[in-house]
Design a protein around this nucleic acid. Sequence first.
DNA 1: GCTAGTTATGTTAGCGATAACAGTTTGTTG
DNA 2: CAACAAACTGTTATCGCTAACATAACTAGC
Lengths: 326, 326
Amino acid sequence: MADIARLAGVSTITVSRAFKKPDLVTEGLRKRILSHAEKLGYVPNRVASALAGAPSMNVVVLIPSMTNMVFVEMLAGIHDVLYPRGYQMLIGVTRYSPLEEERLLQTYLEFLPDGLLLTGVDHLPSTWNRLENLRQPTVHMMESTDRPGCYCVGFSQFDGGYAMARHLLDRGYRRIGFVAAQLDPRTLARADGYRQALRDADLYDPRRELLMPEPSSISMGANLLDQLLAQAPDCDAIFFCNDDLAQGALFQCQRRKIDVPKQLAIAGFNDLPASAWTSPSLTTIATPRYQVGCQSANLLLTLLEGEQPSMPTHDLGFSLMTREST
Amino acid sequence: MADIARLAGVSTITVSRAFKKPDLVTEGLRKRILSHAEKLGYVPNRVASALAGAPSMNVVVLIPSMTNMVFVEMLAGIHDVLYPRGYQMLIGVTRYSPLEEERLLQTYLEFLPDGLLLTGVDHLPSTWNRLENLRQPTVHMMESTDRPGCYCVGFSQFDGGYAMARHLLDRGYRRIGFVAAQLDPRTLARADGYRQALRDADLYDPRRELLMPEPSSISMGANLLDQLLAQAPDCDAIFFCNDDLAQGALFQCQRRKIDVPKQLAIAGFNDLPASAWTSPSLTTIATPRYQVGCQSANLLLTLLEGEQPSMPTHDLGFSLMTREST
DNA sequence: GCTAGTTATGTTAGCGATAACAGTTTGTTG
DNA sequence: CAACAAACTGTTATCGCTAACATAACTAGC
């Protein structure tokens, strides 16, 4: 910067302004400065910039897992919004553990992020406490909370679970099972939605429920289908808490020659790309995870600009995709 | 840091050393310093640290796409190695464009990364040039090159393509088609492998080839199956350049009541989780993308420690997964 | 032609840490 | 027990940039 300043016959602060606050520098002078910078192959030093008090252009993003497409697509949404604005994501993986989340937060604050994007609202009390005392704004993704002063972007997992159970009831199924794995707060909210819908219809039976804390996957889906049918052979429909499990179950039904949906209906959650293409195609709830990413990032940008967002909580909804499997 | 120093009755540099170079500080003193730091809720400032000359603990990672599971799993491998060592990934998405890659590189160098992880070896001449003059080490992932002084971790895409075509020939197929989308350098290398294998068997026919520059997806796979069968109805096997396309084709065959593999064999590439579970299960090449991520990160760490790695290029190989679809 | 009000540029002093060298203490040896 | 090396701690300067305030150069109005 000093070199550029010397060549252009100005002080370094003017060079700084030519880059960061162009309207404070006369048009012609600015062009001269930029051309000298170009000639010298100047690479700005964001580290020095951040130390001197400018925004670090870092945003911490914490997600539970990097192999779950749902979070990856959310990440893609965040990236697509933040990157054009010059922000950099610092991605942390909590492995579904609030404790790990607390540690990651501690670590990533060392990078002087300008803002935070956290998945869910299930944080440790100490994490909440720290977030409240932070000067950086935080947006919570995928779920919402009543806590005052919280910014959230997501949809109601409970309502999603309820809607799918309701759909199965509407289709005439009466002995509806529920299967879940990776029991994170969002999965449990869907389970609650399912239970409420069945209770409202006076058809809830806990023996048709199978909850497995281990991670979900296609093979786990096949596995859990067998388990549930063993423990509750009279099921006429099964609602899986996500599409991975549901797809695994569909494939297993093909192997076991169980006719879907005639003998057994199968439903999922999330609408992964393959779900529209399986045979039979999978009835599921399409969730706006990419949009959650985009909107969360946009909300954070609003906060970073010091503006007051129109609403603290954005409910992006979901849609029921009725397909052949039910 | 000054506060801690005051309380502990030492100078700031001693505090710095207590954290960063523990063996230079007497055991008791170090403990006292750390306990004061704890009490004060001290959060180290990595930005200042980096400006003062310490490593920034940032590593730039450039991948072509964030919605392609192959790169995401590679990313997961990188993360799993770098995170425990205190490094932070700065992730950039090139959208398969070397020009965009050059721009990202320019931008991310502003963060003073300690090292770089790039996907592939298909960079602009100016990018190569810049990489050579960088003091930071670079590792190239997923492909390798003869360029001297380059560190690469991956496997031979050409050999993978050749091996799959060879497998189909060994199974007795004679009119073997090839379908590809998203024609990045790795895809084209697989295509070359396929061609070579068929030429070696004197069975190559360009009319059985379908190359589509648009992104690949399950629905694109269904689509391209139809297209190829329209232009070359006599195919007895089709090799798809990745599992997304192959799965889409499998689903389409189910819809069109084409018997796989009796009427038509289908093969893919990558071995995505679902590929073992479709009906029929998909013959494919299992690629070590998670391991590529891990090993690339490990190689970079070796370089960051100033050590000479045992080999500049690591070929992690691949394995043919023979399943029902062929 | 002069003042007040703007706009454009410059000066000074850090941001929070570490490198390089300097000084002090401790331990060992003949 | 002096003499010197090794181990520990301190002093000073600096990394590259920007905030805050100071100053200079314009502009408009009377």
